[in-house]
Design a protein around this nucleic acid. Structure first.
Lengths: 171, 171
DNA sequence: CATGTTAGTTCAATGAATGAACCGACTGAC
DNA sequence: GTCAGTCGGTTCATTCATTGAACTAACATG
């Protein structure tokens, strides 16, 4: 999505799409939930042009979805971490991905989402049937499903193990 | 969003964004849920360039989200109606719009969603607290909320009354 | 000293979105 | 029967965003 101005609509869908609807942005956020934090890791994993990545990260920081955080002064290195606002987007992304799994994807699921406490698989709304609670991002565990494509880059290899959302990958 | 190829990702988010992530598409779908069906009504209500509207409608039809239906032979007139696949997108759009209402919008809500059977307001997940059911698109009633901006085009005037989703507007 | 990593910037080429103008087939009002 | 208007588009020039490749600066490692 582009010229980002959806003409101040009487509609929150338009406002949300201005915020996270641009091309690549949803995938950047997905990766952020999966624990990617560094410029080079986003770039490698998404195969996104670096200029675009720079721009998207900057915009997301500016809008309060990500926080840019120095983790080393010499050399200067920064990581991009979801803010609380960013984390609150989890149900939106989950809903999108579940719709895709149900309606677009033949074959076995590529990723499984479980309630970290009890390891029960979540339903399409992020609800844990065993515990009868709606699980927030911080309580979700991701795991590669049987249909996972195997990518062979450094970042993907760091993401094959079951792990909680938001935990930084070690690459 | 654009060149539509998200490089066959190991991820359903990418696939869904290919389908409905292009600029204007979510707003076209929103309007379709609100009962808009005709080319001219979409064009007037969204203020979208007509060439883009033509393209988006065609793409959505091609991908099975909308159906193009002749409602008059002389003169030839067609309407664009959500298919079952299109209707199944309701939770996705609802989730997006609710997130926007909660996090982007100061002031009173612009639109209210109720369970048509009991007229109870739905929660952020489209759940009716009174009946304890998840309400599908066909059971949802839309109403302008106190924060509704008043647009003054023909189509907006037809949309001020409470009405069920998917019922065609009469303009 | 050479090589590699990180986090970028710059640039030319491509492709999409925009807005305005145009069009053919009709309708309804006078 | 003529005139204005509607509907569902198409066409076109301009603007704007994305892409991919090349380049950079600052450091680290061996």
């Amino acid at each position: 999505m582009l010229p980002k101005e959806y003409s101040a609509e009487n509609c929150s869908i338009a406002r949300v799409m201005e915020l996270i609807g641009e091309r690549w942005t949803p995938l950047i956020l997905r990766d952020a939930f999966f624990g990617i934090r560094r410029f080079a890791d986003f770039a490698d994993h998404l195969a996104i042009p670096r200029a675009v990545l720079t721009d998207r990260l900057r915009t997301l920081v500016q809008r309060g979805v990500l926080e840019r955080r120095r983790y080393s002064e010499q050399p200067p290195r920064q990581e991009y971490v979801l803010t609380d606002l960013g984390v609150s987007l989890w149900p939106v992304l989950y809903q999108i991905s579940q719709w895709g799994e149900r309606h677009l994807n033949e074959g076995p699921p590529r990723r499984l989402f479980r309630h970290a406490d009890c390891r029960t698989e979540l339903d399409g709304y992020g609800f844990c049937p065993a515990c009868a609670v709606l699980v927030p991002a911080s309580g979700v565990e991701v795991d590669n499903g049987p249909g996972a494509a195997d990518h062979d880059d450094r970042v993907s290899r760091a993401m094959v193990m079951p792990r909680p959302l938001l935990r930084p990958i070690q690459s």
